[in-house]
Simulated scan of single mutants.
Amino acid sequence: MLFQGTFHIDASGDGLRLDRVLETVMPGTGLRLRRRLCEEERVLVDGRARKPGYRVRTGQPVEVKEVEEMATPSALGLRIVKCEDGFAAVNKPGGVHSALIAGKSEANAEAVLPNLFPGQAPVLLNRLDHMTSGLLLVALTPEARRAYLEYEGQGSIKKFYLARVRGRLDGIVSVRNRLDTDDRKITRVLAESDPDFRRWTGVTALSHDNMADTSLVRCLIMKGARHQIRAHLASIGHPIVGDPLYGGGECPHGLMLQHQRLEMPGFQVEIIPLF
């Protein structure tokens, strides 16, 4: 499990950043996780909460407040799909957090990436909602991370999702409304269009189930915002099946949304559709 308790900085840690020295008592944890613990004031030095970049000194007591046990990749249902040219793709099931949520301590995919890629410095490049299944992209080198950010800025990354939505949806729709993500729970769809094409959601109808009155659709985004696909689909009258937040109702199979394919220069990956 993650370390809980108090330890003292020895000579080897003198002058190091707090988020770095924490690795000595939390081996296998990612740097981003350790930084978040500091930001959430779960790490105290001399009895005071300190920022991740705080430089510790020999002899200082460091207290780590209670954090839930860190799960293993297999326990979370994570599976490596592909590794190539500094990138890796991991399949995440629905019901698993992509990363640590502020104020929470649940097990998450980002925290166990070092276990999936031992001896490397994996960095999570995208996130999926807790209820959403599918592909998480990971950079295994600093060069890969820089390349991803460059591709994202250029709009040359394509993320394809499958969703089953309420009602009959035909043809192709481009939802271009700007999103307001300030609310921590619900993303609001605004009336005006977003000038950034990377924030649009392209929707292509694939099939319709007459008995259930639901449609299977493929969604394309390039640089997603929080709940982008869920909010955009609901705004055009077709909430995703199993989405209690945006009007899709309950479903025994959970949220019917899967990040199924990703394309970018030099790297493509796809997983088997769930529905």
Score class of each variant (00 low, 15 high):
residue 78 L to Q: 10
residue 79 R to Q: 11
residue 80 I to C: 05
residue 81 V to N: 00
residue 81 V to E: 09
residue 83 C to G: 00
residue 84 E to H: 08
residue 85 D to W: 07
residue 85 D to G: 04
residue 86 G to I: 02
residue 91 N to K: 03
residue 91 N to V: 00
residue 96 V to M: 12
residue 98 S to Y: 11
residue 100 L to P: 02
residue 106 E to F: 15
residue 106 E to V: 06
residue 107 A to F: 12
residue 113 L to H: 02
residue 114 P to G: 04
residue 115 N to G: 07
residue 119 G to T: 04
residue 120 Q to L: 09
residue 126 N to H: 12
residue 127 R to F: 12
residue 134 G to E: 00
residue 136 L to D: 02
residue 137 L to C: 00
residue 139 A to M: 05
residue 146 R to L: 12
residue 149 L to M: 08
residue 153 G to I: 03
residue 157 I to W: 07
residue 158 K to N: 09
residue 161 Y to A: 05
residue 162 L to F: 13
residue 163 A to D: 11
residue 166 R to V: 14
residue 166 R to N: 06
residue 166 R to L: 14
residue 175 V to R: 02
residue 176 R to K: 15
residue 181 T to Q: 12
residue 181 T to E: 15
residue 182 D to P: 00
residue 183 D to M: 00
residue 187 T to W: 06
residue 190 L to H: 07
residue 190 L to W: 11
residue 192 E to V: 08
residue 195 P to G: 06
residue 198 R to I: 08
residue 199 R to F: 10
residue 200 W to H: 15
residue 200 W to Q: 05
residue 202 G to Y: 09
residue 202 G to C: 01
residue 204 T to A: 13
residue 204 T to H: 11
residue 205 A to K: 09
residue 206 L to E: 14
residue 206 L to R: 14
residue 208 H to L: 04
residue 210 N to R: 15
residue 211 M to G: 01
residue 212 A to N: 09
residue 212 A to M: 11
residue 214 T to F: 03
residue 215 S to F: 03
